[in-house]
Write a protein that binds this DNA or RNA. Sequence first.
DNA 1: CGCTTCTTTGACTTTGTTCAATACATGTGG
DNA 2: CCACATGTATTGAACAAAGTCAAAGAAGCG
Lengths: 283, 283
Amino acid sequence: MARVCLAGDCDSDGEGAADGLAQRVIRLRKGEPLYLLGDPLAALFAVRVGTVKTHVATEDGRTQVVGFHFPGEVVGLDSIGRRQYASYATALEDTKVCMIPMDVLRPLAACTPALASRVFRALDGYAQRTRALQTLLALMTAEERLVTFLLWISEGLAARGFSSSEFILRMSREEIGSYIGLTLETVSRQFSRLAECGLIRVKHRSVALVDKAGLRAIADRSAISPIPPGTNRRRGGEQRVPAQAVRTSAAAWATRTQPATAAMQADNPKINPFAWEAGNGQQ
Amino acid sequence: MARVCLAGDCDSDGEGAADGLAQRVIRLRKGEPLYLLGDPLAALFAVRVGTVKTHVATEDGRTQVVGFHFPGEVVGLDSIGRRQYASYATALEDTKVCMIPMDVLRPLAACTPALASRVFRALDGYAQRTRALQTLLALMTAEERLVTFLLWISEGLAARGFSSSEFILRMSREEIGSYIGLTLETVSRQFSRLAECGLIRVKHRSVALVDKAGLRAIADRSAISPIPPGTNRRRGGEQRVPAQAVRTSAAAWATRTQPATAAMQADNPKINPFAWEAGNGQQ
DNA sequence: CGCTTCTTTGACTTTGTTCAATACATGTGG
DNA sequence: CCACATGTATTGAACAAAGTCAAAGAAGCG
């Protein structure tokens, strides 16, 4: 909560300039746009309080929420490297964001390695989150999608120090559905169904996760697993002999200069779209 | 095709060191893994010839292709910023890649701004592609997905100087389906259906795009459009008054230091997962 | 040349969508 | 402060789209 505005702990390089990043605080009321798709990319925005959604629309009027952004997170990363915003950003409730002008960020990042790496990690985090969504959308059932979504929200809240088992959703059923690739009716039905099973309690937008273990069991069915070798069970799939050699040689590069580093590697951490930037970034 | 191995046109900084990035060429036969999920992140790989898929698997055995990688593209970007590979990488056909060891890339990028920015753009490109997939998976029908996929392939080939209207797919129906969130049967049926309509010709893995305009019309239905203000048609949705002020002030930042730049902005380019890195990156 | 894998196609089932009606909150104005 | 209006949520029934199961035909590979 304190680590807001990208420059939060940038004092490591004692610049002071980095703190100047947050040029200005902007207040948005519920439903107000922060920027529109196609607007010149003038700034990134760090959410201070409130919630922002980023979204796009298709030619024929379908709509797609591409991201929800909670306090501590940066809005606009999906447009970095472009000249114009690639999505709309709209406040879901009364919200305060601080503006990080690109004209300040760019030159400053160019001469401040710590800041550059911070931006880099933020972008990497964005990519990770989007990929988690990719798998959610490609191979989860409606139930798994909603459960996974709820757990993401829950973990995001926990990372920010709030109750992770009882919370109020800031977005409508339609927005949830749009985000996880379902219709609002299906979302609503899944909510009811989970409540029937005693896994959660729902009353409109307030949700209580009653049986977290049960929920996690559902989500874990579709969780990415490091165990099986992958798709190809073809006969040729076992031609791993030379591959072994390749991997060994690749690994050799890692070991050559920093053998200790290789040893103290942790497990693959789970990706959570809503807990990424709030925590100190698990890398 | 010539611009391979990340350092392709890095001679701008005359380092020479950048060209040393491609430490080693690795040959893979069809079906061979390049790396496994969980392996220590030792290197990125640039595809020289052939095709690589990156993929993951869930606890209960479902499989998901998260990316196809063609000549000129980098494999492993989804794992940058982590200590271990976040997916499997497997050759779809006999393939040559060159290895870019992280131990070389990291320090070199740290002191070579041109290279750092190159890596940054590659990561940005990866994020863009993943987001294009996100919308594909969330709101396209089976037909739109396959058509969009085919057009991506086609444009990717065109960007690399090959025929964009006739080509041979390197991946199976199952792999296509896994990538675009469908079963292999549905993919096959959609192929047949498109052929029936005279939009394409298919014979197993060789595809000819007969009526590109027709195909594009299908894909455009679900193409992202900058026109409508977005989701919220709520009464409060028109509270754009202060937002206008916000946007104006945000835009002012852009104009302040580089007014000319703002003026020569191009349209939002289309995102194409398979033409991104081959072309010189549309930004 | 024979085996395996991949692709196509058919019949049927499941899942989620669509259309529609009702109920629930919230916030606004009388 | 209450009543009404509006957007939001729930639920039902019919429908459509894609998934599953199954079998047969075509390519590729050893």
